[in-house]
Design a protein around this nucleic acid. Structure first.
Ligand SMILES: NC(=O)c1ccc[n+]([C@@H]2O[C@H](COP(=O)([O-])OP(=O)(O)OC[C@H]3O[C@@H](n4cnc5c(N)ncnc54)[C@H](O)[C@@H]3O)[C@@H](O)[C@H]2O)c1
Ligand SMILES: NC(=O)c1ccc[n+]([C@@H]2O[C@H](COP(=O)([O-])OP(=O)(O)OC[C@H]3O[C@@H](n4cnc5c(N)ncnc54)[C@H](O)[C@@H]3O)[C@@H](O)[C@H]2O)c1
Lengths: 220, 220
DNA sequence: TAAATACTGTTAAATAAATAACAGTACAAA
DNA sequence: TTTGTACTGTTATTTATTTAACAGTATTTA
């Protein structure tokens, strides 16, 4: 009945890549391309063509020999798998530099995800619209989250405020949280949590840069 | 001689976690804790204590039975492994909302990574200081990158400008790039590239939220 | 001083993910 | 026609990562 059920056991990494494939495919579509080969997708994503074909096999999509994959069809299929039928509503907690960047970024994206609310404690910000999205006070969290049926919260408040903000979201019945602050938070098991810190990413890059530097130094 | 050599084959995931452990440990240190158990670190990072102990085994660090790990020692050791001896210099490309958020975020972090330059095309921004960091014009990319010995570039320009910006960085001899725009870029093999898009992260969260919703619906 | 407890550290096993190998096929060129 | 080429799709293998199992031990409790 529901397509999702069959895709329950897709590898986590495949889910991520499907989202990335779609993003790339949408750009190709804008450039009036109608078909694409696995090795073209692979090049864009910095992976191998085998991996692309394997992912597409897992979702049961077949291309045409010598023509490749139909871009529009593939976009639609990926949508059926990873998107919800209804809009998934998202709230941004904290309208600072990062919050603004995220709301702006979303603004021109046509997507099944929609930022429909911002929450802040600063009275200069609450009650205003930013990019068409209303900014509410934190007192309104429970009512707005429930009335609007918001399922995902993005935390971009000052780091020390992250745990209390997460607590409010959980209490309001949020289903998923993306925490951008460097302060790790605790949530119940049934809330899907992702924490993403730039420092970790940069430190990883720095480590591998250092490693390759040292290898080059040895060669000489 | 150099400690790094022995740590060349650490799993990528371990490298990421070491950075995260350190971040958490620094907070603990501020709270006047001196020792910590593997299960405490695990809880903070949402992983198992076995994984923590295994990671620490891989880097050859031993704790004390019944006392746990010495936080300061562990922080220092992680630093020896993942940090470079000298400061790793970083440039931010594009001083928009996201660029500002990143520079601000770094500002109060004591770290071996340092944002020392910003590049922008907007003449209102070039020639100024933001948070103490000079903003240069894009023409100055080659000279500044080389003179300052900048090894990592963070791309936060408008998406369409990402490929040309990456090209300039590569030409200037950059070693690693973190691309925050949704436009995938191509770089030579010897440049370490990481691309990070919020939409992918959010779509993944949305997928697993949907999955768990459907499971709950079935149960009833 | 013996047993229970609460940890660490290591090896072994299981799981997840990526890669390789290769069979199949439409099309083009000879 | 036949052969070569350039692809897809699938299964098998390898590699990477996580988890489990458990041996070892300092400390407390009885
Ligand atoms: N993960 C990353 O890569 C990354 C990058 C940059 C910044 N950050 C982090 O993101 C967070 C936000 O950064 P920023 O530069 O936008 O900060 P900012 O200070 O510009 O903005 C914070 C906003 O949150 C609001 N706020 C404060 N307390 C609040 C509360 N309890 N509830 C709701 N709103 C509240 C403030 O009024 C302000 O508008 C910081 O924790 C920062 O460390 C993370
Ligand atoms: N990965 C994510 O999670 C995420 C989140 C938000 C935004 N983004 C992306 O990050 C990018 C920046 O977002 P923003 O909100 O800061 O945009 P912005 O428009 O506020 O800022 C862009 C800045 O880049 C400068 N610029 C333009 N062309 C340039 C060039 N060729 N060289 C140097 N500087 C140049 C502009 O003058 C401006 O200051 C966008 O591509 C956006 O899509 C990514």
């Amino acid at each position: 009945m529901d397509a999702t059920h069959a895709f329950e056991h897709l590898p986590h990494k495949t889910i991520e890549r499907l989202s990335q494939y779609r993003r790339a495919l949408l750009i190709c579509l804008e450039n009036k391309k109608t078909h694409i080969f696995s090795h073209e997708i692979a090049k864009i994503q910095h992976i191998t063509s085998v991996q692309v074909r394997r992912d597409l096999m897992l979702i049961g999509y077949s291309g045409t020999l010598r023509q490749g994959y139909n871009i529009q069809e593939l976009i639609d299929l990926i949508g059926e798998i990873i998107d919800s039928e209804e809009l998934t509503k998202v709230a941004v907690m904290g309208l600072g530099d990062l919050g603004r960047a995220l709301v702006n970024y979303f603004h021109d994206k046509r997507s099944k995800l929609d930022i429909v609310a911002i929450f802040d404690i600063n009275p200069d910000k609450t009650g205003t619209l930013f990019n068409g999205v209303p900014c509410y006070s934190v007192e309104e969290i429970p009512t707005i989250i429930q009335e609007e049926n918001i399922s995902i919260g993005i935390i971009t408040v000052p780091a020390v405020q992250a745990p209390v903000t997460a607590g409010r979201l959980v209490k309001a019945g949020i289903k998923g949280i993306l925490n951008y602050t460097p302060t790790p938070i605790q949530v119940p098991n049934d809330v899907y949590l992702e924490e993403l810190d730039m420092i970790t990413t940069l430190e990883k890059i720095a480590f591998y840069v250092k490693l390759s530097d040292e290898k080059n130094a040895l060669k000489q």
